[in-house]
């Protein structure tokens, strides 16, 4: 059984944190994961930095640029993850763009993910049809989950379709925006989150994009199994006090 399934067996209010691998420093990744695990985060999403992150807002774009400059790449990340594999129990999700997967060689990419303790993958620009036709079997072979996104513009029948393909959980994009925009979370998305709830999906849901603080996280938890925080977390990272800044940020969300 994939450990993501274990996670959602018990309780709600799951906090997932997204950060960019190789930011602020090339070797920060290991440390960030260790501290996030200590601070009781439920799920960790590692962003593989990309030169052209189409769906990302300014904060993640900047962290991507710096991480690439620091020398982060998939080989680096996999070897860093392998060093801490035995001590990490929190499910790890890798998020990247399709071209990174394609260029690396799809099967070796999945093989490396498996060997590095990754449980699931998100490629926001990999179309559903292509995934089904070319990659679903490979993901199954390596026991890796493919996680799909839905947005408030996604019609009900497509949400059902995506929730059937998605494994582990469904990533619910709270607003029509790139990441980190944080616009009007209190109003518009609630109609959408209600719509999701009324579909009675059999898969857990996590709400992401625009969740930045305790209020928006709590609201996400009311409607879904939890929330994903990315840009706000990355912004809070203090290069000179990684541990302190992470503990402070997570405490501000959970307590």
């Amino acid at each position: 059984m994939n450990i993501i399934d274990h996670l959602f067996k018990k309780g709600k209010n799951k906090l997932s944190i997204y950060f960019t691998a190789g930011y602020p420093k090339l070797n920060s990744t290991k440390k960030i994961i260790q501290i996030l695990q200590q601070s009781k985060v439920n799920l960790i999403e590692i962003g593989l930095p990309y030169s052209d992150p189409m769906a990302d807002g300014l904060i993640i774009q900047k962290s991507n640029k710096k991480a690439l400059k620091n020398g982060m790449n998939p080989d680096q990340l996999f070897s860093q993850l392998q060093l801490i594999q035995n001590e990490i129990q929190v499910p790890l999700i890798l998020m990247g763009y399709y071209n990174q997967f394609l260029k690396f060689g799809e099967e070796s990419f999945l093989n490396c993910c498996k060997k590095s303790g990754i449980s699931g993958l998100i490629f926001p620009d990999l179309p559903l049809e292509i995934y089904k036709e070319k990659y679903q079997k490979l993901f199954e072979k390596y026991e890796l989950y493919f996680i799909c996104l839905v947005t408030s513009q996604t019609p009900d029948n497509r949400i059902l379709l995506l929730s059937n393909i998605s494994k582990g959980f469904l990533y619910v994009v709270s607003s029509i925006s790139t990441t980190g925009q944080n616009k009007d979370f209190e109003t518009d998305p609630l109609i959408f989150l209600n719509r999701i709830n009324n579909l009675n999906l059999s898969i857990p849901t996590l709400v992401g994009f625009g969740i930045a603080n305790k209020n928006s996280f709590n609201l996400a938890c009311q409607y879904a199994n939890g929330g994903i925080i990315g840009s706000a977390f990355i912004q809070s990272l203090d290069e000179n006090d990684l541990e302190g800044s992470i503990h402070r940020f997570i405490a501000s969300i959970l307590y």
């Binding site: 030169s51 052209d52 690439l68 399709y98 071209n99 997967f101 260029k103 690396f104 620009d125």
Partner: peptide, 21 residues
């Protein structure tokens, strides 16, 4: 270039070995 995705299209693109444009 080599086969890769740029601006949402699978085509020939100038990229490094990790798919960075």
């Amino acid at each position: 270039g080599s086969k890769g995705v740029i601006h949402g299209s699978l085509t020939f693109v100038m990229q490094d070995k990790y798919g960075q444009i």
